[in-house]
Amino acid sequence: MEKTPLDRQAMCNRLAMEFQDGWVVNLGIGMPTLCSNYDFGDKQIIFHSENGVIGYGPLAAEGEEDLHLVNASSQYVTIATGAAIVHHADSFAIIRGGHLDATVLGAYEVAENGDFANYKTAGRKGGGIGGAMDLAVGAKQVFIAMEHSTREGEPRLLQRCNLPVTAVSVVTKVVTTLGLFEVTPEGFKLMEIAPSFTTDDVQAQTGATLIIPDNLVEFNA
């Protein structure tokens, strides 16, 4: 049977399902922005962006961009009803001050102790920290969305990060192309597994020992 990894939208939908009514959420650059495509139904989610936008909506239609309004990925977005604007220091006061319920970030590596690395790759002098270090220490929940393995097939879920870390002991949940994982004091716990994959498949592509609970279910998003 053909084994199909999860697609990016399904991965982000699964994290978006964790958002509770009234949460203030910051979505990182790249894949995490897909979380805003999820249908939240009656739940009100306030999307915060580093540039001081508290409450933005879907991407602006082509030709209808407001040239004074972008999200953290520099995409032209719409403003949500009831939005507010603050300057950059106040925006990071929201982040650092513990007023964000969750952030969703991309990463190169996540360690079983909750460390993660997402700003600097091996062999490059420079790095792109952006708001990631502040989000990581400030948000109540730090969710990571990433491919399960590198292009070369190396695992990204590890005992300890090889790359310079963005923050230590902060990650609470990780969604990858193979499933949903919780970071527990004992290590990575596989909560939901991608259809058609076995726990042996997932363990073989993971650089840390997985905890497989009795109540493991198929990935559902």
């Binding site: 708001g131 270090m133 502040d134 963005t166």
Partner: peptide, 26 residues
């Protein structure tokens, strides 16, 4: 980025320095 914003804020506000949890362990 948040440290950058706050350092600039501090510069304009006459604050001598500040402690932040951002970046600890990195």
């Amino acid at each position: 980025q948040g440290t950058l914003a706050e350092r600039i804020r501090a510069g304009g506000a006459g604050i001598g320095a500040f402690y932040t949890p951002t970046g600890v362990g990195t």
